[in-house]
Computed example of a mutant assay.
Amino acid sequence: MINIIYRLKSPKFFEEAIEEVELDGVIVRPTYLSICQADQRYYQGSRPSDILTEKLPMALIHEAVGEVISDNENVFSPGDKVVMIPNTPLGDDGYRANYSKLSKFRGSGFDGFTCDLVSLNHDRLVSLPDDFDLKVSAFIELMTVAYQGIMKFKEFKTPFSNVLGVWGDGNLGYITALFLKQMCPESKVIVFGKHVENLNLFSFADDIYLIHDVPKDLKIDHAFECVGSAASQSAIEQIIDLINPQGTINLFGVSEYPIPVNTRMVLEKGLTLQGNSRSEREDFEGVVSILHNNPQLFSYLSKLITNVCEIRSIDDLKTSFDKDYISDFGKTILKWEI
């Protein structure tokens, strides 16, 4: 079957490529996709030049849902709605697949979902209920990153988990705080950010604070850093200052540069740092289950959608990335009609 793939050849330049798609797995047509900051870094050319040379040309986007076209094993039926898992294990070295060096990741190590058709193994798909909002479902992958970090935190948390702090008022901070309220209902969730207009959207949080206006006597038991870039340094500094002894600091933010950490206070307080990146099938299943059992979450998550772009051409794809780039907050959703 003929497939057209829309690849980023160089920063801000997409090209079409025609390839044959094998029919030995599940064939899915993407329907809604979501732009991630990682996609933007490739599109804007802000990754190091050697990385761009190594990975481009490449189809972008790893957050997407689609519709099943065919399945040679009849596990899925034509028309089934599915969320696609971008992490692709190519072997088993004993590590969790999203941290294994034997795994490849769509939109990073190989082609993402900007194509007419995607061929996937059955275990790279999770079915979606018919009543799911597909625009929100397009960024389930981002939700799974928060979910797997929270699940990992719950494995190691101390008995003192009364106050949880989330640093970052962007998309991941919003989702992490929302899921913490759902997954740790016994805990108080406080969000720390620097944009009043963003923080006002966190209506479900127990408290919100501007990072420069925090009560002097405030303490937290565990923290979730969702800031990233160079700003994660000041976030981690503030976390270490406010966190109680033996707390856990969950790191989600990605930075292109080394971030200094006050190891003296990490040692003095006996803190644990947990790194969190990407996700695996069980995380997708967990998020779909949470959304199915708590449909009210869709109304909160829909507030993250700031742009919905219909994609019928490469020019539309470029326009969507440009719109997303100038958005200070929220997700750009692509209605894939190309």
Rank of each mutant, 00 (worst) to 15 (best):
V189W: 00
L56D: 10
T158F: 12
I314R: 13
N98I: 14
T114R: 10
P57R: 15
T31A: 05
V191T: 06
D71F: 01
Y257M: 09
F284S: 08
D324T: 01
L134I: 11
D39Y: 01
I4W: 05
G270A: 11
V287Y: 14
D130Y: 01
R312Y: 01
S289C: 06
N293G: 01
P260V: 09
A97K: 03
E19G: 04
G170N: 08
Y43H: 08
R264N: 09
Y43M: 14
N200A: 09
N307E: 04
K194F: 07
I150H: 00
I211K: 14
K181L: 10
E73Y: 00
N307V: 09
K12I: 15
P258M: 13
E155A: 11
R124Q: 03
D207C: 12
F76S: 00
G270Q: 11
V189K: 01
V261C: 12
I338D: 07
A177D: 10
D283Q: 07
P57I: 09
I220K: 05
V254K: 14
H122Q: 12
F139G: 03
N307I: 03
S46I: 11
N307G: 12
D133L: 02
F110G: 08
F192E: 09
F156E: 10
Q40P: 01
L178A: 05
Y43E: 09
V145R: 12
L210T: 02
E67M: 04
L33S: 08
L102V: 03
L164M: 11
N262I: 02
S302Y: 13
F179R: 05
D92P: 06
Q37L: 15
M58I: 13
A205R: 07
F329C: 10
M151L: 13
